[in-house]
Structure formats: structure tokens, C-alpha cells
Amino acid sequence: MDQEETLDKIDLLRQRMGVGYTEAKKILDKKDGDVIAALVELERDQKVKKTLNNKVHTIFKKGSATRLKIKKDGRQVAEIPVAVGIAGILGSVVYKPLAIAGAIGTLSAIANRYTLEVEKPSSEDEPKSRLDIDSCK
């Protein structure tokens, strides 16, 4: 396959699938210049990415609406979206000082008898989930 023919195939893939030159060239090489096979694989990959993106968006949306409430003696001390809590957990996996700070905070909460409530936006009939940190000793 000469360069002009390859460039035409790459342009076709870019036009039809909205990919860059690098991705079009890579998939075309992988499929030995077969444009139809390249189109099929790119379409499959885009569907997978779209499905994954939709799932992540749904999880983030639910996590933003669900709230973590930290209370002491029935008085609310803090409230954060679950998504922020998850981001903190993921951050602590990557950054060790954050993990240490989280562990110290958790131990302090247990020692001082704080409670953690998870409030999901749902029908009024459903009870709130409640975790008494003191009972985890």
C-alpha cells in the first residue's frame, strides 16, 4: 500500500469516526490496511467508551446527590457529598500523607463518639442509613 492510498484510508477513518491521525494509522496498521475492519473496531471501541462514560457520569451524579453527615451528640458537624469522600479515599491510595491524615481522623472520630449518616435522595418512605462509629470498636 503506497503512502497516498494509506493517507486516503486514514482520512476516511478520521472523517467517519472522528479520530486523530495517530489513532487512525494505528488501527489501520493493526487491521493490515482493511478499512472496513478498522471501522468496525473503532465503532466498537467508541461504544465501549460511551457506555463507560455514561456509567461513570451516573455514579458521579448519584455520589454528588448522596451526602455524608458527620454528627456528634445529634448535632451536625460536617456534611460532604459522597463523591468527595470517594475522591479522598482514592487520593489516599496515591498520596501516603493523605492516608495517614485519614486514619488519624477516623481514629479521632471513633474516640470522640461521632456518628456518620449517609443520606440518599430518595422517597420519603425509605429510612436513612446510619452508622454509629462508636459501635465499630
Score class of each variant (00 low, 15 high):
10 I>A: 02
11 D>Q: 15
11 D>M: 10
12 L>I: 04
13 L>S: 13
15 Q>H: 13
15 Q>S: 13
16 R>E: 04
16 R>I: 00
18 G>Q: 12
19 V>K: 08
20 G>W: 13
20 G>K: 11
21 Y>K: 04
25 K>Y: 15
25 K>T: 11
25 K>Q: 10
26 K>S: 10
26 K>E: 15
27 I>A: 05
27 I>K: 10
29 D>V: 04
29 D>C: 06
29 D>L: 13
30 K>T: 00
30 K>R: 13
31 K>N: 08
33 G>Y: 07
37 A>T: 01
38 A>E: 08
38 A>I: 09
40 V>A: 08
40 V>P: 02
43 E>T: 11
43 E>Q: 12
44 R>F: 01
46 Q>L: 02
46 Q>E: 06
49 K>I: 00
50 K>A: 15
50 K>R: 12
50 K>I: 06
51 T>M: 07
53 N>C: 03
55 K>M: 11
56 V>E: 07
56 V>L: 14
58 T>V: 02
59 I>C: 02
59 I>W: 09
60 F>A: 13
60 F>G: 04
60 F>V: 15
61 K>N: 11
61 K>G: 03
62 K>A: 12
62 K>S: 05
63 G>I: 02
64 S>R: 13
64 S>H: 12
66 T>A: 13
67 R>I: 03
69 K>N: 06
69 K>L: 12
71 K>N: 04
71 K>A: 01
73 D>V: 06
73 D>R: 14
75 R>T: 15
75 R>C: 08
77 V>Q: 09
79 E>L: 00
81 P>Y: 04
84 V>C: 06
86 I>V: 15
86 I>D: 02
87 A>W: 03
88 G>D: 08
